[in-house]
């Protein structure tokens, strides 16, 4: 399997008037074919910004000052006034934004959304063809076809999130960028969504996923590799197991040590979390495991 996405030297800055805020500072990441890259970090780390730059939807006040994106050997310049071909957005890279499940129009049935999405890329596509594609997908993933006729409020949170996830990949994007797709869900729905996401990858509805989240335990169940971001930089990246079991960078260590899961040791010990670490050590050079 080859490299699917190679994003290099990305720098994203918010021009906010008073002072510029560098949200993503010279970051390079790579996603191999068929893999899930977990992009982890706390609020303000730049993970969502990086996700939106890679999914080609950066817009003011966010400006991409430099960077290139290579997908399937085709190189796309991102910086400055680079023109991004319309065909890339949605069909090469697709973004599932945070809270998308709660931002779909409450007055329209799901099939309307399907039709909107398909039509925006192919003006001439017929309603039937669009719906057939959706029906096929939904059946393939074991969901009831009737969700297409439902209004959003008739679906549970978990179901809604699964539906928008399916819709976001209807155009067979090469890469799906999913921003906190599990954060608003109950643990059981999280598990189901993750299983579905992996199944979608298996069935090649998309060829790779960037999974943006603050939730490390979730990443451990879904990600092939994890990249940890801190203050706009990737401080450490590597295979999931290695990152979880033997983190090298002080910030990654601190982050991992702040995670509380129901494991016997946590009911006995006191954890200092981030305050147990020297913050200046977080500026140490990045550790990149291959």
């Amino acid at each position: 399997m080859g490299t699917l996405v190679d994003a290099r030297n990305i720098r994203g800055v918010y021009y906010t008037g008073a002072k510029d805020v560098v949200a993503v500072d010279d970051v390079s990441i790579r996603v191999e074919e068929g893999e899930v890259l977990g992009l982890a970090g706390e609020s303000g780390s730049g993970k969502t910004t990086l996700g939106s730059i890679i999914s080609l939807i950066a817009r003011p006040p966010l400006h991409v000052e430099q960077g290139t994106l290579e997908i399937d050997g085709k190189v796309q310049e991102l910086g400055g006034d680079a023109r991004i071909p319309r065909t890339w957005r949605g069909s090469v890279v697709s973004m599932l934004p945070q809270g998308a499940m709660n931002s779909i129009s409450p007055t329209k049935r799901v099939r309307h959304l399907v039709w909107d999405v398909m039509r925006s890329h192919d003006r001439r596509i017929s309603k039937e063809v669009a719906l057939d594609r959706a029906r096929e997908r939904i059946t393939a993933l074991g969901l009831p076809v009737r969700v297409l006729d439902a209004y959003p409020h008739q679906l549970s949170g978990g179901m809604k999130q699964r539906v928008v996830t399916i819709i976001s990949t209807l155009l067979n994007p090469r890469l799906l960028v999913a921003d906190e797709p599990t954060s608003a869900l109950d643990v059981s729905s999280q598990k189901i969504l993750i299983e579905m996401l992996l199944e979608m990858l298996d069935q090649k509805f998309m060829s790779g996923v960037i999974f943006v989240t603050h939730d490390l335990p979730v990443l451990r169940t879904v990600a092939t590799k994890i990249a940890v971001m801190y203050q706009g930089r990737v401080v450490e990246s590597g295979p999931t197991q290695l990152m979880v079991d033997r983190p090298q960078h002080p910030y990654t260590k601190a982050l991992m040590s702040s995670v509380l899961t129901p494991e016997p040791k946590y009911s006995k010990i006191r954890i200092e979390g981030m305050s147990g670490f020297d913050r200046t050590s977080f500026d140490a050079p990045a550790v990149i495991h291959s």
């Binding site: 969502t48 910004t49 939106s52 999914s55 939807i57 817009r59 006040p61 319309r86 957005r89 949605g90 069909s91 697709s94 973004m95 599932l96 934004p97 945070q98 809270g99 998308a100 931002s103 779909i104 129009s105 329209k108 959304l113 909107d116 999405v117 925006s120 890329h121 928008v164 819709i167 976001s168 155009l171 921003d179």
Partner: peptide
């Protein structure tokens, strides 16, 4: 299609629909 107003996620559905 959607109406997201958080600065970081503006245009949620624009993305889903691929709207410019």
């Amino acid at each position: 299609v959607t109406q997201v107003t958080e600065p970081e996620t503006v245009g949620a559905a624009g993305l889903l629909t691929g709207t410019e």
